[in-house]
């Protein structure tokens, strides 16, 4: 009995290892993913409706900007996280993305600062 157990164990292990080697998932897992994709798709549609609906409220520019960007970041985040499966992605990919985002943020902040400065809005002088 113990022998057959051992064989089963070994088989299971090798299967797992095969699944890992491909860095992919079993059929059951994929089906679970598919359900997630459908759910995300629904959420994105709802959020699109929300974005448009909020715009008809004609909020002042600053709150409108904040709401619109929050929703956009949330939607973009959902696509990146699930469709691009960043959830569970390897650290290497995150390192690229963090580096890039840091530079983009620097670019935005410095561009806006430079523009305000050009318009005579000067802090600390």
């Amino acid at each position: 009995m113990s022998e057959s157990h051992a064989v089963e164990d070994a088989l299971q292990h090798s299967e797992e290892r095969f699944a890992e080697q491909g860095a992919e998932h079993s059929a059951e897992e994929v089906r679970k993913h598919v359900r997630t994709y459908l759910f995300i798709f629904g959420t994105l549609l709802v959020l699109t409706v929300v974005t448009v609906a909020v715009s008809y409220l004609h909020l002042p520019i600053v709150p409108a900007l904040i709401v619109a960007l929050l929703i956009a970041f949330f939607k973009g985040g959902l696509v990146a996280r699930h469709f691009m499966h960043l959830v569970g992605e390897k650290p290497l990919i995150f390192q690229f993305l963090i580096l890039t985002v840091v530079f983009v943020v620097f670019m935005f902040i410095l561009f806006i600062w430079a523009l305000l400065d050009q318009q005579g809005v000067r802090y600390g002088t």
């Binding site: 990919i93 993305l97 983009v104 935005f108 806006i112 523009l115």
Partner: peptide, 25 residues
Amino acid sequence: IWLFLASEIMLFGGLFSAYVFLRLG
């Protein structure tokens, strides 16, 4: 592909910051 997308983020980052720059100005 992720490196390519990183450069694409910079491309659209540049375009969006140009947009912000022009709009605020």
